[in-house]
Design a protein around this nucleic acid. Structure first.
Length: 109
DNA sequence: CCCGTGACTTCCG
DNA sequence: ACGGAAGCCACGG
């Protein structure tokens, strides 16, 4: 049993469950998975999920609602474009009403 | 096996 | 309130 590999799959599974128009943070996912200290690994997992189009990595931001991962997308503002296309208001790489549209897996799931 | 890096978070000064 | 440093886990070289 490779929990390490499962962690990635779990992160991907949670990311897929993020409702449209909602966003979450790496720490929230990590905490939900029982590894609150592995928030960084969540980001790493998202990097691996970059190849899976069914995983909305653009809905995952840091705890401040900043598009910390936008730099990893194809374009420079692709992440923001995707979010805005889903109804999420983004301004200056920051998600507006972040706490309002925040999707907490531990609470919602 | 050791070191460096990273889409984070929290604590200390 | 702000900035810097450390902690954290996994992966690649």
């Amino acid at each position: 049993m490779s929990n390490n590999q499962d962690f990635f799959k779990r992160v991907h599974a949670v990311a897929k469950q993020i409702p449209v128009g909602r966003v979450t943070s790496y720490g929230a996912i990590a905490k939900y998975l029982g590894a609150a200290k592995s928030a960084r690994i969540v980001g790493y997992a998202m990097n691996a999920s970059h190849g899976d189009l069914s995983i909305p990595a653009h809905r995952v931001v840091n705890r401040l609602g900043l598009l910390s991962g936008k730099h990893h997308f194809d374009g420079t503002n692709l992440m923001q474009q995707l979010l805005e296309s889903e109804g999420v208001v983004v301004k200056d790489n920051k998600v507006q009403n972040f706490e309002d549209i925040f999707w907490n897996p531990t609470q919602e799931l």
